[in-house]
């Protein structure tokens, strides 16, 4: 089980209270009408699946119900940091 720090509640809670919502920092195309099928398809369906550092979106589903970002090592499961939506990660892959 993860022990996850919620940056909104400002304390650690059990993983059971959270849901992982996939890759973070996926920007919606500013002009969807101008996207090619390939660009739109990649925006909708294509996700990273790294072995190592991954930036993920999580939601404190049973708690404050707010979303936040997490940088996690998918190999060791170590959580490197959590940060709010709109902020940039300080731990990044080389």
């Amino acid at each position: 089980m993860f022990h996850i720090y919620c940056p909104h509640c400002a304390e650690y809670r059990e993983e059971e209270e959270f849901h992982a919502k996939g890759q973070a920092h996926i920007a919606r195309p500013l002009d969807p009408e101008a996207c090619s099928d390939k660009e739109w398809g990649e925006y909708l369906f294509f996700r990273k699946n790294p072995r190592g550092l991954h930036h993920e979106l999580w939601v404190h589903a049973a708690g404050c119900r707010k979303f936040f970002n997490m940088t996690r090592d998918t190999q060791t499961y170590e959580i490197k940091e959590v940060y709010k939506i709109g902020e940039q990660p300080s731990v990044v892959a080389e």
């Binding site: 809670r13 059971e16 209270e17 049973a62 708690g63």
Partner: peptide, 12 residues
């Protein structure tokens, strides 16, 4: 120690 009177949590 970590759950004083007045504290409130939403949880499972």
């Amino acid at each position: 120690k970590v759950f004083p009177v007045g504290k409130v949590v939403s949880t499972v």
